[in-house]
């Protein structure tokens, strides 16, 4: 745990000094919200717009997961750590970045699409957290896979979006239900899928990560 905290702290400190990833992800999210809102801004379009924004924000930010370590990845790998812990730290950092993006883009969705968002915040947090964890798990695994590939900025969305499609479908379903004022049990199936997705992909990524970073 201490190791994970140290690694996350290091990445967050680096990010805080440069603020590159979060500002790029955040700006893209705001732009997407505006583009989607300008084309179709009814309340019924809000859930889809939110999740398209989060998914694209994630693919932009997560490409950078390991570029930060470009010259130091070997140093990180030489440290006597379980590779799973490196994954946990990177996924946690990515997830925190995504949460920042979700929070800062929320006012825009509230203003452009539907004000119901403000009255349903506590319930909305559930799919946003569950969905964010799944996006971070898959994105960190694939982000690690393609550090040395050509055209990695193009490759990550191509690999990531089909795999996370079930997550996006379930998250949009859950968000729609919440904004329509349904009680939580009515979207139980969607939340269950999000939870199962998170469990499967966090576990699989944790186990497979060893093969990702190996030289």
């Amino acid at each position: 745990m201490r190791v994970v905290r140290l690694l996350v702290g290091k990445d967050l400190r680096l990010e805080w000094r440069g603020r590159e990833i979060v500002s790029a992800m955040g700006l893209l999210a705001l732009l997407l919200a505006i583009v989607l809102g300008a084309t179709r801004s009814g309340p019924e379009a809000a859930p889809a717009a939110m999740w398209v924004t989060y998914a694209f924000g994630a693919t932009l930010g997560f490409t950078r997961t390991f570029t930060l370590e470009r010259d130091h990845l070997t140093a990180l790998l030489l440290a006597p750590l379980d590779r799973g812990l490196i994954f946990a730290a990177k996924a946690l950092t990515n997830w925190l970045g995504l949460v920042v993006v979700q929070v800062i883009s929320l006012p825009l969705f509230g203003a452009l699409f539907t004000e119901t968002i403000w009255t349903r915040l506590p319930a909305l947090a559930i799919p946003m957290l569950l969905g964010g964890v799944g996006l971070a798990a898959v994105g960190t695994l694939f982000g690690g896979l393609i550090v040395q590939a050509r055209l990695r900025e193009a490759l990550l969305p191509i690999l990531m979006l089909p795999v996370v499609l079930p997550l996006v479908i379930a998250a949009v379903g859950a968000t729609t239900g919440i904004l329509d004022g349904l009680p939580l049990w009515a979207i139980g199936a969607q939340l269950q899928l999000l939870l199962v997705f998170d469990i499967i992909f966090v576990t699989a990524s944790f186990l497979l990560f060893e093969y990702v970073v190996e030289e």
Binding site: V163, P166, I169, A170, G173, L193, V196, F197, I200, F201
Partner: peptide, 12 residues
């Protein structure tokens, strides 16, 4: 691994 999850989500 994704096959059953995609199928499930499409049913939803």
């Amino acid at each position: 691994l994704d096959i059953p999850i995609i199928h499930w989500s499409a049913i939803l």
